[in-house]
Design a protein around this nucleic acid. Structure first.
Lengths: 219, 219
DNA sequence: TCCGTTTTGTTGAAAATTCAACAGAATTGT
DNA sequence: ACAATTCTGTTGAATTTTCAACAAAACGGA
C-alpha cells in the first residue's frame, strides 16, 4: 500500500488525516487494490453497491446505458478521485450505473460499511471519514449541477460552448485538453456525434476556437 | 417551534434523533422559521450559500436561470424535505441556483456552520447530524441521476414517458399527480412547452395515457 | 358574477437534430 | 512496417424541436 500514499494524501476521502495514520486506516477499512485493463468494467450495472472506488492510476468513466443501448457519460474520475460513493452511502441495492476503466488503471476498493460503521478495533477515524464523505458528496452534487447546466442547453452549439467555457474556467486558461474523444464528448453532452463534429468544424471556420483532437483553444 | 415537531421528525436531517432532544438541538443550531408567499424567493442566485432550508409547509422549486433567461427546474422540495444543503456543505461562495416558494410556505433556515461545527454548548448531536447530512446528500445525488436519465433522452416523447414511468414507480400506482404545471414540466424536462402539450395530446389520442391537468394515468 | 390574468392546446413555418453511410486519418498491435 | 481497427469529419434526407401567434379554458380577485 505504501506506494499509493502520495496519491491517497490528495484524495478528498482522506483529507485531514495525518500521513502516519493512513496505512493503519487503510488496513482497518480492508482496502484492497485491483488493476483493470483499458475498457474493462470496474463496477457493473445491477451489481451490489457495496464498494467505494478510488482511482490510484488511470481513470474511469461512470456511464449509464438505457433500455435501447444509448450511452450517457455521467462523469469521469481521474487520479485521486472517489467514485460510486453515492450508491454505497445511500444503500441502494443495485448499481444503476457502470464504471469503466478508460486506460489501464489501479483502483482501490473499500467496503462502504467499513467507512460508515465503527470497526472492531474502534479506530477513531470514522467520524472524520464520514465528514470527508459528506464534503465529497456535496461537491459531487455541484458537479452534477454543472453537467445539468450544460445539457439543459437546447442546441449542440450551446452545449458545446457552455461545456468548453466551464473547462477553460477549470483550467484557468483558454487552452486546455478534455478527457473525452468525440464520441465520449457527444455522450456527455447528450448529442449526436456527427452533429458534434460538424459543429466543431463550423466553430473553427468561424474563428471561435481551435481544436486538435481533444485539445481546445478558445479565441 | 413545537408545532413543527411532527414534520421535523420526518425530516432526514433529524433521523435517529430522539423527539425529546429535537427542540434543544433546534435551539442549539439557531434554527428559525420564515414564511414566504407564493412565488417569493427563498434563496436568490448569487447570495451567500450559508443556510440549509427545510420545508415545513408548502413547497419550493430549485431553479437555474441561464444567461439568456431560460429557466431550468432542478428539483422540487415538498414538506419535510431539505434543500440547498449541497451548496452550504461544499462551502461555495455564491449560490448558483434560486429557490422559489410554489405556494405560501414556511421554511426553516439553519446556518450550515452550526451543523458542521461544534457549538459552544458542546451538544453531542453534531456527529449524527453530519451522518444524516451525508445520507441525505447521497440520496440527492441519486435523485439528480434520475433526472439526468430522463433529460438524456433525445425526444420530448421519450423524456415525458421516462419521467412518467419514474413517477408511477414512486407512487406505486399507474395513477398519480405530478408537482408541475405544463410550463414547469417543460422546464424540468428541458423541452418546449407547446411541443410538450402537443405530445401529451398525441399520447392521449393513442391511448397510452390519460391526463387531466397534473393528474396522469398510464394505460 | 364578472373581468382580467394565467394556463393550456393547436397550428404552421423555420431551425436543428438525428440517422445512416462513407472515406480519409489516426491509432494499435503484431 | 503493415494490416486491421478505431476515430473523425462530411453529407443529405428524414425526423423532431423550437418559435411565434392565437384562441379557448381555467383561475383568482373584486
Amino acid at each position: 500500500m505504501k506506494k499509493y500514499l502520495e496519491i491517497l494524501k490528495k484524495c478528498p476521502l482522506f483529507s485531514q488525516i495525518a500521513d502516519e495514520n493512513l496505512l493503519t486506516i487503510l488496513h482497518c477499512l480492508g482496502a484492497r487494490v485491483v488493476s483493470f485493463d483499458k475498457k474493462y468494467t470496474v463496477f457493473a450495472e445491477g451489481s451490489p453497491a457495496k464498494h467505494v472506488g478510488i482511482v490510484l492510476s488511470g481513470s474511469v468513466q461512470i456511464v449509464q446505458i438505457d433500455y435501447y443501448g444509448n450511452r450517457s457519460i455521467l462523469t469521469e474520475a481521474g487520479r485521486g478521485e472517489v467514485f460510486a460513493e453515492a450508491f454505497a452511502c445511500a444503500e441502494v441495492r443495485a448499481l444503476p450505473i457502470t464504471a469503466v476503466a478508460m486506460e489501464p488503471s489501479e483502483i482501490m476498493l473499500i467496503d462502504c460499511d467499513h467507512i460508515l460503521h465503527t470497526c472492531e478495533n474502534h479506530c477513531g477515524f470514522h467520524q472524520q471519514l464520514i465528514y470527508n464523505l459528506m464534503k465529497d458528496l456535496a461537491s459531487k452534487t455541484i458537479q452534477f449541477l454543472q453537467r445539468i447546466e450544460v445539457t439543459a442547453k437546447r442546441t449542440t452549439r450551446e452545449k458545446l460552448l457552455t461545456y468548453l467555457a466551464l473547462q477553460a474556467k477549470k483550467a484557468e486558461s483558454n487552452e486546455f485538453t478534455i478527457p473525452f474523444d468525440r464520441q465520449d464528448l457527444a455522450d456527455y453532452l447528450e448529442v449526436d456525434r456527427s452533429g458534434l463534429s460538424a459543429e466543431i468544424s463550423k466553430l473553427q471556420k468561424e474563428g471561435v476556437l481551435v481544436s486538435q483532437k481533444n485539445r481546445f483553444t478558445l479565441l
